[in-house]
Amino acid sequence: MRDPLAEQFEDLEKQASAARLGMWAFLGSEVLLFSGLFALYAGYRTMYPADFASAVAHDNVAIGTTNTFILLTSSLTVALAVHAIRAARARRAAGLLLASVALGLLFLVLKGFEYAEHFRQGIYPGDRYRFAELSGYGAKTFFTIYYVATGLHALHVTAGISVLGYLAWACRRGHYTPEYHMPLELGGLYWHLVDIVWIFLWPLLYLAHA
């Protein structure tokens, strides 16, 4: 097995700190990426409060809430996987990561059903919007932001699923030990960030209908 300590570091502790700081800097840049969409939401919601409220009320809160529970549970299984590898239980860690992958896929399937329901009603992003029941300018704007925000989030879920799938395979192959499992820890951080973004999207897109 390759020496886990890169030559420019004196010890694993320093290497781990550097790796974590780099990952947090990346996660910070991801927050900036999503913050533009949150700002658009805030601006247009202030401009069209009534249209936004009725558009939010139209969203499928059952699917949205189920997906919230799914992502929170997948975050738990990722946290437990990191815990398992710290205790040298690589097979258990691999199993927990595969459970997270399954939950992530379930999230995407439910999201797909939701998109299909919208498409059937003529709710498309931008100029393609054809939903007569909510014909206001604000409703059209809401759903365009909805598609961009949930679409960008779904891309992150897809990337996270691939990362977790790779990590499960690597755990299974015995690549990680209690002393060296930094990829698993960093991949876990990415998945938790995807969860946090959804923690904010869920109330804004499904709950705030007053």
Binding site: L21, W24, A25, L27, G28, V31, L32, S35, G36, F38, A39, L40, A42, G43, R45, T46
Partner: peptide, 17 residues
């Protein structure tokens, strides 16, 4: 890093609104 990112989001969202 988290605190600075959160401060930016709060400022951006609240000032745009």
């Amino acid at each position: 890093i988290v605190l600075v990112s959160c401060a930016l989001v709060v400022l951006l969202v609240s000032l745009v609104a």
